[in-house]
């Protein structure tokens, strides 16, 4: 019997014209001018950052725009030791889930300028932005977060998110 065909190569390439949506587009345009925009649910008043245009819990559109601060609290973290394409941080580094002041949900980023064994839940951080002339409608306009030097936030202030 002939050798079995164990694999075939069939290259696939598809191009998409992707739309982030109205809410996320406004968020990205805000980022380009040094401003972090969330949207508040008209029913439960949770502020979504980044916004996707709806409150998934209440199933209503979120329309009221709210600017949140670029400081926040680390609600959980992980030390990353495996390389990944498109990641330019030196290994190992700390990925964080950060609850920005004024936001109702945390989002993911990276914390730098702190020994990894000191990264902790409750750590207060602030965004380090790229230079003003390099600001663009991308989350990469926030280079990373760094410790703000404030005392740790109490557990009660972020227990819902950890």
């Amino acid at each position: 019997m002939a050798d079995p065909v164990k694999s075939i190569v069939t290259p696939i390439r598809l191009e998409y014209d992707y739309t982030p949506g109205r809410a996320t587009s406004r968020f990205l345009r805000g980022i380009a001018r040094h401003c972090i925009l969330g949207q508040e649910c008209p029913k439960c008043h949770k502020v979504y950052v980044p916004p996707r245009g709806s409150c998934p819990a209440c199933a209503v559109p979120t329309e009221r725009e709210v600017e949140v601060r670029d400081t926040g609290t680390v609600v959980t973290f992980s030390i990353i030791r495996v390389p990944s394409e498109n990641i330019h941080f030196e290994l190992p580094y700390a990925a964080i889930s950060v609850l920005l002041d004024g936001a109702g949900i945390p989002f993911f980023h990276v914390v730098q300028d702190i020994p990894l064994d000191q990264v902790r839940m409750g750590l207060r951080v602030r965004a380090r932005w790229v230079a003003t002339e390099a600001l663009a409608p991308t989350i990469a306009s926030i280079e990373c977060f760094v410790p703000s030097g404030e005392p740790d936030a109490p557990w009660e202030s972020f227990r819902e998110h950890s």
């Binding site: 739309t19 949506g21 109205r22 245009g53 709806s54 559109p61």
Partner: peptide
């Protein structure tokens, strides 16, 4: 739908 994402155009229909 050049502006709205799936959630943004689906939600009014579901509602």
């Amino acid at each position: 739908e050049s502006e709205r994402n799936e959630v943004e155009f689906l939600m009014p229909v579901v509602r």
